[in-house]
């Protein structure tokens, strides 16, 4: 179960320093919840972590951590908040100066119209200003970004670009352009964000492979 070698991506303190904002993007083909689980697992040992999800229930992450061999009770610093099917009211209450706040798919709230894009961006940066660090997972599927001029795509692009402009680091999960492979799940790209900072980001592309409970990451 321990063939995992992350080449330092998950060292956490490397990327997640005070006040950093990181963006993780994924697509329908390669779900990004596993990487959030890894961050929760690794950061949760030393830091306070609050994971807020719009897509999954609490049990999903409890189970995901259990598959990683960790009971949620063993991580007293970790709190999982599921807002699946609920209105994202008063998100700022989760801000905490000692906590790393991880947001999964806040883009769903703007897509279903329960929150305007501008309010969303404002809220996320309000949280960031009073928290240790914020990491945010949004979708980067091409139909959501470039295809038509529908309000849905425009709003999504708008949200993505506004968040992108505040990033310290970006983690991109994509399937292989050649399609499904037996021993590769997809590519993981770590790059510097657009905000000028001292955060050291080792820009690199990796191949990752999820096999059962294991994740293997190898530099490309």
């Amino acid at each position: 179960m321990t063939t995992f070698n992350d080449f330092g991506i998950f060292a956490g303190e490397k990327l997640i320093e005070d006040r950093t904002f990181g963006l993780v993007t994924a697509t329908n083909d390669v779900n990004g919840s596993w990487i959030l689980t890894q961050f929760v697992k690794r950061l949760g040992r030393h830091d306070k972590v609050i994971l807020i999800t719009s897509m999954n229930d609490e049990e999903f992450y409890i189970e995901a951590l259990r598959r990683q061999g960790i009971k949620l009770q063993a991580l007293p610093n970790v709190r999982i908040v599921s807002l699946l099917g609920k209105n994202p009211e008063n998100l700022c209450q989760y801000a905490d100066k000692d906590a790393v706040v991880i947001l999964e798919n806040p883009d769903l709230w703007s897509a279903e119209g329960s929150m305007e894009v501008q309010d969303m961006v404002k809220t996320i940066f309000q949280i960031q200003q009073v928290s240790k660090a914020v990491m945010c997972l949004i979708q980067a599927d091409s139909p959501l970004l470039e295809t038509d001029s529908s309000l849905l795509a425009t709003n999504h692009t708008n949200l993505g670009i506004q968040l992108l402009h505040q990033t310290n680091y970006i983690i991109t999960l994509r399937p292989l352009p050649t399609g499904r492979a037996e021993d590769v799940t997809g590519t993981l790209h770590v790059s510097r964000g657009t905000r000028p900072t001292n955060v050291t980001v080792d820009e690199k592309e990796y191949l990752y492979f999820i096999k059962g409970e294991q994740v293997k990451i190898t530099p490309r």
Binding site: S54, M55, N56, D57, E59, F60, L84, G85, K86, L108, A111, E112, G113, S114, S150, L151, L152
Partner: peptide
């Protein structure tokens, strides 16, 4: 309406989780 459809799907997803 796209808002409505996405909201509906979110609610359906939430129901499948509630009555797992």
């Amino acid at each position: 309406d796209s808002d409505y459809v996405i909201g509906l799907f979110t609610q359906l997803r939430a129901l499948t989780r509630e009555y797992k």
